[in-house]
Design a protein around this nucleic acid. Sequence first.
DNA 1: TGCAATTTTGCAGAGCCTGCAAAGAAGTCT
DNA 2: AGACTTCTTTGCAGGCTCTGCAAAATTGCA
Lengths: 218, 218
Amino acid sequence: MTVEMGLRERKKAATRDALSRAATRLALEHGVEGVTVDAIAASAGVSTRTFHNYFPGKEEAIVAPLTDAARALLTGLAGRPADEPVWDSVRAVLHEVITPPDRFGETVALLRIVRADPSLVASQLCGLGQMQAEAAAVIAARTGTDPTRDLYPHLVAGVMGMMMRVTVNLWLDGGGVADLPELVDSALAQFRAGLPEPDRPTPGREAALAAVSADPSG
Amino acid sequence: MTVEMGLRERKKAATRDALSRAATRLALEHGVEGVTVDAIAASAGVSTRTFHNYFPGKEEAIVAPLTDAARALLTGLAGRPADEPVWDSVRAVLHEVITPPDRFGETVALLRIVRADPSLVASQLCGLGQMQAEAAAVIAARTGTDPTRDLYPHLVAGVMGMMMRVTVNLWLDGGGVADLPELVDSALAQFRAGLPEPDRPTPGREAALAAVSADPSG
DNA sequence: TGCAATTTTGCAGAGCCTGCAAAGAAGTCT
DNA sequence: AGACTTCTTTGCAGGCTCTGCAAAATTGCA
């Protein structure tokens, strides 16, 4: 998969990675507001000006791993067999991305930082939005739909991105103890069923249940 | 609905509106990059410092009408009858928001500006994301689900926001000639059906179509 | 080794944004 | 009305962001 790169490209990738890591680390230590571009650049051993050759701002540097993950979602989708049902492809790439890779803990810490800061959320959503547009094109090609006329590919791409966000958020709120792949499958199943409204306790039943729990003699 | 406000609050609302309008107008005239906070403030007749008392940056001022629309979506949802099926409520508030109000043309122009600039998209998505979280709480209360444990309310809220974005985007790409409420209903119907994969043209038909478009003599 | 392409860096300059304290306007008493 | 309280506006200072430009350093290749 990884093609051989010259020294130049390897150094660029290393610098980019160093900057992104430094940004994340400093944001964890001092809070997002407490970290300056100067500090990030110094920590990565390059000049401030060089930082801006790689990222337009510190937000982008911090969320870079998440942006990369979104890209992985996209390339993963493009790499699925062309005759696979779309929802199977979506499920497969989602599971690929959330399966603990080598640096799972770092990603979780990063997610917590990002969620706590609106400017980072904005930056992340923007990247996800771009990914979504490209994913819609891939899905359109795969399903024989027209992305300039049909809602379908956009809806599927939107669901994919949205599901990613929603499941991860709920998972983080639960302390990360739940089974994330299971959560994703649950979300997918609810979608495929058209998100039916769950049964609500009727007033009568509700009263009955209340009576039961309130009256031990029942 | 509108409560009587003192002179103070009326002036504040007027200033905020003037700033937002000035921001949009200047962005249309000179492009987003070409407008400064100084210019916006001057155009609204207040000092630069006062601008920052109302908005943290020009992005927020420009997308303010869209943020307000998202809030309207939320309050509309909260105002629906409690025993109405959730999807009916969602459909109703979406239709309310997209039904041409007094300033429809301005909103469309604004949407075009926003879509063309990543920083504005980020700002808009961030506002939409906050709305979505609150909408999830409303939906949870209405369906008897638990927003800290159940995916359902988050998925419904996510679908609502996502549908809004996707339909408006496709509508804008089509030049605004399509029937937007109809588009929304179509999206809703596809969701309720679980977004089934559309029938793909058979290889034979595909090949035939390719041959037609590739061979002008055909 | 020497040349061409690429990357890094410093500098200058425009702009953004916040805290602070003084001045001004609005609302509220007697 | 007059005085007092509360809120809003404003200027200023200061630090941070980001971009274009051109020189210096580094890498790739013949």
